[in-house]
């Protein structure tokens, strides 16, 4: 028989170990650490884009140009991977003159959500600049699977 004390210790170890595992899986800079209140789902964004009324967001793609050139959300602008200094500078340039209440949607879709290196730094940067209406498009797997293959609107080229 396992004593109560042993069970308590086992439970404490389990909770600590799982917490550590979850913490390791959500390292700073990863998309998984973006609060859910900052996120927008593809279907919700599509509804906003297709609505006849309401403010349309400025959509910024913060992934690679090769991916953008193959497929991107119509009217979205290319920024580039903000993990690079050049990409971060470009992001600042593209929003610098905008009002802080501007509705902005960031997206990437280069990799599965928990591996995307770009959206979290971009979200952090815009909020640090004072933007208050920023959403990050939640792309679970990649832009192909979660946007293009769903039949959502797509544009190609520059």
């Amino acid at each position: 028989m396992i004593s109560k004390r042993t069970r308590r210790i086992a439970l404490a170890v389990l909770i600590s170990a799982l917490s550590a595992a979850i913490f390791l899986g959500q390292a700073p800079g990863q998309a998984t650490s973006i609060p859910s209140s900052h996120l927008i789902n593809p279907e919700d964004l599509v509804k906003i884009l297709q609505a006849t009324q309401g403010e349309k967001p400025l959509m910024l793609q913060v992934g690679s140009y090769v991916l953008y050139a193959q497929a991107h959300i119509p009217a979205s602008e290319y920024v580039g991977p903000v993990t690079s200094e050049a990409g971060m500078q470009q992001l600042h340039r593209q929003v610098d003159s905008l009002p802080k209440k501007k509705f902005i949607v960031l997206y990437c879709g280069c990799c599965p959500w928990n591996h995307c290196p770009n959206v979290k730094p971009a979200d952090d940067a815009l909020r640090a600049m004072g933007f208050t209406n920023v959403k990050v498009l939640y792309i679970a797997n990649n832009f192909g699977a979660d946007w293009v293959e769903k039949g959502y609107p797509v544009a190609k080229g520059q």
């Binding site: 595992a21 979850i22 959500w113 797997n141």
Partner: peptide, 18 residues
Amino acid sequence: GLLFVAVGVYVALHRGGS
């Protein structure tokens, strides 16, 4: 055993649903 489970959870999280 619990540490083994935790490492498994970490690996699953780290590699994602891919």
